[in-house]
Design a protein around this nucleic acid. Structure first.
Length: 828
RNA sequence: GCCGAGGUGGCGGAACUGGCAUACGCGUCGGUCUCAAAAACCGAUUUCCUCACGGAUAUGAGGGUUCAACUCCCUCCCUCGGCACCA
């Protein structure tokens, strides 16, 4: 621990002073109507929790650096902040502690604002958006109504994910490994009537348009593509023997149709009951099916459940060869995917193979592996690869990849089936049986049925005096004054919907509200929004790769379709920062490994915490927090402070670069190299760690210069270096930078200044050191003029002492010269 | 199983388009200052051999391409993240 009696510099006086300055001068406020070059820098708005730790800070610090840097590059930077303020934690805390969610949420918001301020992270606070306030959720409800009007919000009864601990339903995206994303309880299935948004309507566009998002991290796009899960195949209609109905199956491997030896149905398939009625062992079959149906109510994907099945006693006819194929019911078929029925080809599908082995069903090879011929009797696993068609009538001999297309054509021609596309993506379940959310703006009228609340009656206010203990039923049901209302159509008595919306609905459009946050006749102003969006830079955690980012893209596309926005992708650049971990684990109260910024800021100042957070490693990767490392950042700032103290005034800045000593040239070169490096690191990506290390090198060089040169800190080049140094540091450590800027004669805010420029001419050296390799191994170095000719360089190298020794009179076979880089001499 | 990211000193990590591996920081060791300590400053620090000069050796493992490989190719191992009975 550094002894804290004496501070390396008076950060405790500096930091509050400049925080107040920025706010008083409204440095971060922007007029969205008047601007020249806009830059929308957005950080994912947080859920208002009681206290932030240094891990949370990373997101805001990165965003603040970007905003300040862009400001110095001359942009009108919009950097707003808000709060994703509805949600379960506040409600759960209220149940425990008896404080109303609204009270605790608004308190937490104040705490967070104070913490952000302490970090020196600044926003245009005039635009704050708080999703739990009626002026905001009015428009969340409005979006719901628009979706409803377009048929994209609908209610249906379905098996849905149910968290027994949160006592509410969950969207598919909120179930992680069969557990509740929030509380880790095992999720069960319940047959309930719920509200859905038809995100599947946009499945293909959501997938296709990932291609437009060239500035998004590859992994996020991959995750979304996996989640949407598109597969192309064929739906085949099988005639059922002795029935008028057909059985429709989806397959991506229509090339294996001749190898189908059984059909498998999901236990919930609507035809199952009809099929088994009147068969020989009806009672036994029915019992087996019933058992599978019960089991399927717990999430089957949870564990690798043993495949079970039962023969229905019925058959379909294979359209290609009129063979009879038995119909089975099995637990490995999911009703939610495809048609809930498959043609099983054991020879070429792992699952079908496993099932066929267990129930001794026939296995027929129809695609042969040219390298290793298959044998249906001896094969130990399904062959799922490509190959040559066999036992497939007129298709035999074709390559299986080609047969896929040919057979699909044949099927469409003969009307046996048609091409079809399936997605894993499910509609978004958005109703919740909880209190702390935006009420669903729907009224049920005995005469008129389901009626959306008209725009003029929005918002549907969330009543405050409600008993909101979770019972599994919506707490709003008990609020009689809320429930009973009049039908907007017939004015007769009617009842309100008592569910609230998933908080991910709130957060799927907030970035649009920031542009015109106080409008009360529209959710946002379309003209202005079209000017400011898409967001230039979005910054947030990878945990939102699917949920929030997919939902926001969906809602944006919908708003685009109803002509509310001109763009259909909300975020142009996306940056996902890694987590900061401690003792090998994510920081959490329960693990007791939370690093609080409060003590660190008290001991070393906010600039130190910022600098270390940025220096810790590449920001997109997880990083381990080290208190010692933070001390190093503090030491560095002390070192900078003392360096700047040597200089009384930088004004007027000397741009005479007359001093031609070796030291001066070296410092000048380092300075311009550093400006270049830092600029490129900030423009080309988020390479804060390497930008900072470059600045550290410049500081080292400046100290070196002071020790070695005659003029020391009085020289023009030294002043110039210090002036640029302060500017280069300013986005990272804004408080100390402003203070040093002022102390050396700068006026106003440093963030109103222009970012330093580098001059390539100062970077190139007159003399460079070229490494000499003998047979690829470094053996010596030589100092030569930068613009030396290859011939002269060759001569110089060959006459260099060490090199001569290494060559030792042997024949030089070849010399490879990479200009300005290296020379490699090849000898036997 | 499939997809994605990654594996470099005691630690966090650098290395452009194949061209001096280990920048910068932390830690450790030594020194300066001091009565002493802390802070600060200066120096050393891949590993091994050598008093030293110097040499050998190293980017998960093994092969390959090349004058030259952390970087490209092949085989394999490990870590992390996502998806997963998706027909």
């Amino acid at each position: 621990m550094i002894e804290m009696d004496e501070k390396l510099y008076p950060f405790d006086k500096i930091e509050p002073k400049w925080q107040k300055f920025w706010r008083d001068k409204k440095l971060f406020n922007v007029d969205t109507k008047n601007y020249t070059d806009k830059y929308y820098c957005l950080m994912m708005f947080p859920y208002p929790s009681a206290a932030l730790h240094v891990g949370h800070g990373r997101n805001y610090i990165i965003g603040d650096v970007v905003a300040r840097y862009k400001m110095m590059r001359g942009f009108n930077v919009l950097t707003p902040m808000g709060f994703d303020a509805f949600g379960l934690p506040a409600e759960n805390a209220a149940i425990k502690g008896g404080i109303h969610p609204k009270t605790s949420t608004l308190n937490n918001i104040n705490t967070m604002k104070r913490q952000l301020n302490q970090w020196g992270v600044e926003y245009d606070w005039d635009r704050v958006v708080i999703s739990c306030l009626p002026e905001y959720y009015k428009w969340t409800q409005w979006i719901f109504v628009k979706l409803y009007e377009k048929g994209l919000a609908y209610k249906k009864k379905a098996f849905v994910n149910w968290c027994p601990s949160c006592k509410t339903v969950l969207a598919n995206e909120q179930v992680v490994n069969g557990k509740c994303e929030r509380c880790d309880s095992v999720v069960t299935q319940k047959d309930l009537e719920q509200w859905f948004f038809k995100i599947t309507h946009y499945a293909d566009r959501l997938l296709q348009d990932l291609g437009k998002l060239t500035e998004w991290p590859e992994r996020v796009k991959t995750m979304q593509a996996n989640w949407i899960g598109k597969s192309e195949g064929v739906e085949i209609d099988f005639k059922i023997e002795n029935f008028s109905e057909v059985l429709r199956c989806f397959t991506t491997r229509v090339d294996t149709i001749y190898g189908a030896t059984f059909i498998a149905l999901a236990p919930e398939h609507p035809l199952v009951d009809k099929l088994i009625k009147g068969v020989k062992d009806e009672a036994a079959v029915s019992k087996a099916v019933g058992k599978m149906r019960d089991e399927s109510k717990i999430d089957r994907s949870q564990a690798n459940v043993e495949k079970e099945g039962v023969f229905t006693g019925r058959f379909v006819i294979n359209p290609v060869n009129s063979k009879k194929i038995p119909i089975w019911v099995s637990n490995y078929i999911l009703m939610e995917y495809g048609t809930g029925a498959i043609m099983a080809v054991p020879a070429h599908d792992e699952r079908d193979f496993e099932f066929a082995k267990k129930y001794k069903l026939p296995i027929e090879v129809v695609i042969d592996d040219p390298k290793n011929h298959l044998n249906a009797v001896t094969m130990k696993e399904a062959y799922v690869g490509e190959g040559v068609m066999v036992n497939s009538d007129k298709f035999s001999g074709l390559k299986s990849v080609d047969a896929v297309k040919k057979i699909a054509d044949y099927f469409e021609d003969k009307k046996f089936g048609k091409r079809s596309v399936q997605y894993k993506l499910r509609d978004w379940l958005i109703s919740r049986q909880r209190y702390w959310g935006a009420p669903i703006p729907i009224i049920y009228c005995p005469k008129c049925g389901t009626v959306a609340v008209p725009d003029k009656d929005l918002p549907v206010l969330l009543p405050e005096n409600v008993e909101f203990r979770p019972t599994g039923e919506s707490p709003l049901k008990a609020a009689k004054n809320f429930v009973s209302t009049k039908c907007p159509k017939c004015n007769g008595p009617a009842a309100r919907d008592t569910d609230t919306m998933d908080t991910f609905v709130d957060s799927s459009w907030y970035f649009l509200r920031y542009i015109t946050p106080h409008l009360n006749d529209k959710p946002f102003d379309t003209d202005l929004v079209n000017k400011w969006l898409p967001v230039d830079q979005y910054i947030g955690g990878i945990e939102h790769a699917i949920l929030h980012l997919l939902y926001s893209r969906f809602i944006t596309k919908f708003l685009h379709d109803i002509k509310m926005t001109a763009f259909d992708e909300p975020f142009k650049n996306l940056f996902t920062q890694g987590m900061i971990i401690k003792d090998g684990a994510k920081m959490s109260k329960s693990k007791g490994n939370v690093v609080s910024p409060d003590k660190l800021i008290a001991d070393y100042g906010a600039d130190t915490v910022r600098l270390y957070t940025l220096f810790i490693g590449p920001p997109e990767k997880d990083a381990e927090w080290s208190d010692r490392g933070a001390e190093g950042a503090y030491r560095f700032l002390g070192r900078v402070w003392r360096l700047v103290e040597k200089v009384h005034s930088l004004q007027p800045a000397g741009n005479n670069n007359k001093e031609a000593t070796k030291e001066a040239e070296s410092l000048r070169r380092k300075l311009h190299q550093t400006i270049k490096k830092v600029t490129e690191d900030l423009d080309g990506g988020f390479h804060f760690n390497t930008a900072i290390s470059a600045i550290m090198e410049l500081v080292n060089e400046a100290y070196d210069y002071m020790a070695k040169s005659k003029n020391g800190s009085g020289s023009e080049i030294f002043k110039e270096a210090v002036k640029s140094l302060i500017m280069l540091l300013s986005p990272f450590v804004p408080h100390i930078a402003e203070e040093m800027w002022q102390a050396t004669g700068g006026s106003g805010s440093i963030f109103k200044c222009k970012w330093p420029q580098y001059n390539e001419a100062f970077i190139t050296e007159k003399v460079i050191t070229i490494p000499i390799q003998i047979n690829g191994k470094l053996r010596s170095r030589i100092e030569v003029d930068t613009d030396i000719s290859e011939e002269a360089l060759k001569m110089a190298v060959l006459s260099e002492d060490k090199t001569k020794n290494w060559i030792g009179g042997k024949e030089v076979k070849k010399i490879i010269i990479i200009p300005k880089k290296l020379v490699n001499v090849i000898i036997p």
